[in-house]
Each structure stands twice: as C-alpha cells, then as structure tokens.
Simulated assay, not measured.
Amino acid sequence: MALSDADVQKQIKHMMAFIEQEANEKAEEIDAKAEEEFNIEKGRLVQTQRVKIMEFYEKKEKQIEQHKKIQMSNLLNQSRLKVLKARDDMIVDLLNEARQRLGDISQDPARYSALLEGLILQGFYQLLEPKVTVRCRQQDVEMVQAAIDKDIIVYKDTVKSNIVVRIDQNRFLASDICGGVEVYNDNGKIKVANTLESRLDLMAQQMMPEVRKSLFGPNPNRKFLD
C-alpha cells in the first residue's frame, strides 16, 4: 500500500529529527573533545611558561646574589685597603716625627760625641781596611776628629792592626743631614753609611714588625711567628 503524502512528510521529519539529533550529539562530542584538548594544551602551555618564568627568576636571583657577593667583596677589599693605607700613613708620620727629633741629638755635645765614636768605630770594623776616609758635616769636623783619635786606639787594640784615617775636607755631608758619618775604604768604592738618617732607616726596617704589633696588635693572618 502506497504511503500517503502525510506519511511521507512524517517520515521525512522523523529522519530529519534523527539526523539533527545525531549532528547535535556529534557536535557536542566534537566540542567536548575540543574543550578537553584545549584545556590540556592550555595546561601544558601554562606549565611550560610557569617553568620558564621560575627558571628565569631563579637565574635572576642567582645573578643578584652573585652581584651582591661581588659588591660585598669589593667593599671589603676597599675597606681593608683604607685600613692598610691609614696604618701606613700612621707609620710614615711616626718615622717623620722620629726624623725631626734626630736633630735634637746633635744639640747635646756629650751625647752626640759618644754617638759619633760608636758610629765611626763600627765603620772601621765593617771595612777592616788599613786606610779609610770619613765624611761628616762641616760643623762636626772637630768633634769627629776627636772621636777618630779615640777610635783608632780602640781599633788597634782590638784588631791588632794599624789604621790610617782622614776626614774628607773637600766633600761634606749635606746640610740637611742631622748628623753621623759615612766611612769609605781607600778607593771610595765601599761605603758604610752611618748617618743618623741611615741608622734610623735601618732600625725602622728591623723593628717594623714590633712597631706594627705595638700600634695595631698581632696580625690575625700571620700563621708563623718565626
């Protein structure tokens, strides 16, 4: 029996409703899958970016920490250098004050005369030459000659050898020298510098560790005391 037009239209509508329902379900399935894939990809991208951001800031933090350490090290070194500079300046001032006081020694004739005798005799012993020349300040010639006369006797008695000594009358020590003498061998190639300034410099070198310890205390970085 043939279907009427109404039945055909009804079946067509039924088929269209079924197709539309299938299409909607398929679309919903596609949307759900797309949403799921979107969320997965979004999560992956967010996690990737989070890791990158964390790595970036960790790197920045390490750089900042390293920079702080370098700055602290530089500041510490600068501070140490300033302390060392201040200490060196204090030592220089101390030595300058000592040099200024050297002139007082020659102002005391008895003390200066005894000092000259010791300085000249030491020059004799260091050279051990039969002929020596003594150079002094022009104003000290008389006092130096008196010291030489005494020292010759002591030298001959100790060394059991003669010595001829002359004072250089052509070249005197500079006027700014505080005192003392220079003793030369006969040809002038060997010199014993026994001016007050040279003796002070020698004593300063020898006693510098003790001076620094007295002024600034023991050196904490020094491991050996010998």
Rank of each mutant, 00 (worst) to 15 (best):
D5W: 09
Q9V: 06
Q9W: 10
I12M: 15
Q21T: 10
E25M: 07
I30S: 11
E37W: 10
E41R: 14
E41D: 10
K42A: 03
G43N: 14
Q47T: 07
T48N: 12
R50S: 12
V51T: 13
K52A: 12
I53T: 10
I53Y: 10
I53K: 14
E55K: 12
E58M: 12
E61T: 07
I64D: 11
S73C: 00
S73T: 09
L76N: 10
S79Q: 12
R80D: 05
L81P: 05
L84T: 03
L84Y: 11
K85E: 12
K85T: 08
R87A: 00
D88P: 00
N96Y: 06
L102C: 04
I105V: 15
Q107W: 00
D108E: 11
D108N: 15
R111K: 09
Q122W: 04
Q122T: 07
G123F: 05
F124E: 05
Y125C: 00
L128W: 03
V134R: 01
C136T: 12
E142D: 14
M143K: 10
D149Y: 04
D149L: 08
Y155F: 11
K156R: 15
Q169R: 13
S175N: 13
V181K: 02
E182L: 12
A193E: 13
R199D: 04
V211Y: 02
L215A: 08
P220E: 01
